Amino acid sequence: APTVVALYDYTANRSDELTIHRGDIIRVFFKDNEDWWYGSIGKGQEGYFPANHVASE
């Protein structure tokens, strides 16, 4: 899976979202739409995150 790096912190608001912190490396499983992508950090943490909070490595 491609990876991206978090540019900003984001705290999940729902159970299907992913909390990310600046500098996190996120594996992107799919891009649901322009605004929300689905991916994982490490083991067990996965969910939707805002695409405008990340950039290609």
Score class of each variant (00 low, 15 high):
Q45K: 11
Y8M: 10
S15Y: 09
D32R: 15
I20P: 01
G23I: 05
D16T: 14
N13L: 13
E46P: 13
R22S: 12
D35I: 11
T3E: 08
G39V: 03
Y10H: 10
D35C: 10
I25E: 13
G47L: 01
W36M: 10
A51E: 03
A6I: 06
G44F: 07
R14D: 14
T19R: 00
R27S: 12
Y48F: 08
G23K: 03
E34T: 11
N13S: 13
K43M: 08
V54T: 15
E57D: 10
T3A: 07
A55G: 14
R27K: 14
T11E: 09
I25Y: 11
E46V: 11
H21Q: 14
K31T: 09
N33A: 08
N52M: 06
F29M: 14
E17M: 03
L7Y: 07
W37Y: 12
P50D: 07
Y48L: 08
I26G: 05
N52W: 07
P2L: 15
D24M: 03
V54F: 03
I20M: 10
E57A: 06
D35Q: 11
E34A: 14
K43P: 11
N52S: 09
P2E: 15
F30Y: 14
D24W: 01
E46N: 04
K31V: 06
F30E: 10
I20S: 01
K31I: 08
G42R: 14
L18E: 01
G44D: 14
T11N: 11
D35W: 07
A51V: 10
R27Y: 14
S15L: 08
Y8T: 10
E46G: 07
I25V: 12
K31Q: 13
A51R: 13
H53F: 11
N52P: 03
P2G: 15
V4K: 00
W37H: 03
V28G: 00
E34D: 12
T19D: 06
N33D: 14
D9Q: 06
D32L: 12
I26A: 02
E57K: 14
G42H: 15
F30R: 15
I41L: 15
A51M: 03
H53W: 07
I20Q: 02
N52A: 12
P2D: 15
V28E: 00
A12T: 04
S40F: 02
G23W: 01
F29D: 09
G44T: 11
P50R: 02
P2I: 15
D32Q: 14
P2S: 15
T3G: 05
I26W: 00
G44N: 11
I26K: 04
D16I: 14
Y10P: 03
I41V: 14
V54D: 02
P2C: 14
I26E: 04
R22L: 02
F49N: 15
V5Q: 10
S56Y: 09
F30D: 12
E17N: 00
D32F: 12
R22M: 05
K31G: 05
E34H: 11
L18D: 01
R27I: 14
E34P: 15
A1C: 13
K43L: 11
D9Y: 02
L7E: 09
N33Y: 09
A1E: 06
T19I: 04
S40A: 15
Y38G: 01
G47T: 00
D24C: 01
L7C: 08
R27Q: 12
V5M: 13
F49R: 00
W37K: 01
S15P: 10
A51Y: 04
D24A: 05
A12E: 03
N33V: 03
T3F: 08
Y48W: 13
I26T: 05
S56P: 11
F30S: 15
D16N: 13
K43I: 09
A12S: 12
E46C: 07
I41D: 14
D32V: 12
A55Q: 14
L7N: 06
R27G: 05
A6L: 02
L7P: 02
Q45H: 10
Y8L: 09
P2K: 13
H21M: 09
L7M: 14
T19C: 04
E34K: 13
D16P: 05
F30M: 14
I20E: 07
K31M: 08
D24R: 00
Y48G: 02
T11F: 09
G42F: 11
K43C: 12
Y48A: 03
H21R: 14
Y38N: 02
I25H: 15
G42L: 08
L18M: 15
Y8H: 14
H21E: 10
H21W: 04
W37V: 01
L18Y: 07
V54L: 02
N52Q: 10
F29V: 14
E34C: 10
A1W: 11
Y10Q: 00
G23Q: 00
N33L: 02
S56L: 12
W37D: 05
Y10F: 10
A6E: 01
T3R: 10
N33E: 07
A6C: 12
S40H: 05
G39K: 01
H21N: 10
K31P: 01
G42E: 13
L18R: 01
I20H: 04
G23M: 03
W36L: 04
A55T: 15
T3V: 11
R14I: 06
L7F: 03
G44S: 09
N13A: 12
E34Q: 09
K43F: 09
A6M: 00
I41H: 05
W36H: 04
Y38W: 09
G39N: 03
G39Q: 01
T11K: 08
Q45Y: 09
G44Q: 12
Y8E: 11
I26H: 00
Y38D: 00
F30L: 12
R14W: 08
D9G: 07
R14Q: 13
V54K: 00
Y10M: 04
Y8I: 09
S40T: 10
A55P: 03
V4F: 12
T11I: 12
Y48Q: 03
A1G: 07
R22N: 07
V28H: 04
P50C: 03
G44A: 07
W37R: 01
G44W: 06
G47N: 06
Y38M: 00
L18K: 03
T3I: 07
D9M: 01
A6W: 03
N52K: 13
W37C: 06
G44C: 09
D35H: 11
H53N: 08
E46S: 10
A6R: 01
P50N: 06
F49L: 04
N33M: 06
G39W: 06
V4L: 05
F49T: 00
N13K: 15
I41R: 11
D32S: 12
E17T: 02
N13C: 13
A12Q: 04
S56H: 14
G44K: 10
W37P: 05
V5P: 04
I20W: 03
T19N: 10
L7K: 12
P2H: 15
A55N: 08
F29A: 11
G44Y: 15
F49D: 06
N33C: 10
G23T: 02
A12W: 00
V5T: 13
E46F: 08
Y8R: 14
R27F: 08
N52D: 11
I25M: 10
G39M: 01
G39L: 02
E17I: 05
A55K: 14
E17W: 01
G42D: 14
V28F: 04
A51C: 07
I25W: 06
S40W: 08
P2W: 15
A6T: 08
D35E: 12
R27P: 06
V28P: 02
I41K: 14
V28Q: 01
E57L: 13
H53P: 04
A6H: 02
Y48C: 03
V4C: 08
D16W: 05
N33H: 05
E34V: 11
T3Y: 05
D9A: 06
F30P: 03
G23H: 01
V5C: 06
D35V: 10
V5D: 03
G39D: 00
S15Q: 11
L7G: 04
S40Y: 11
V5K: 14
G47K: 00
I25G: 02
G39P: 01
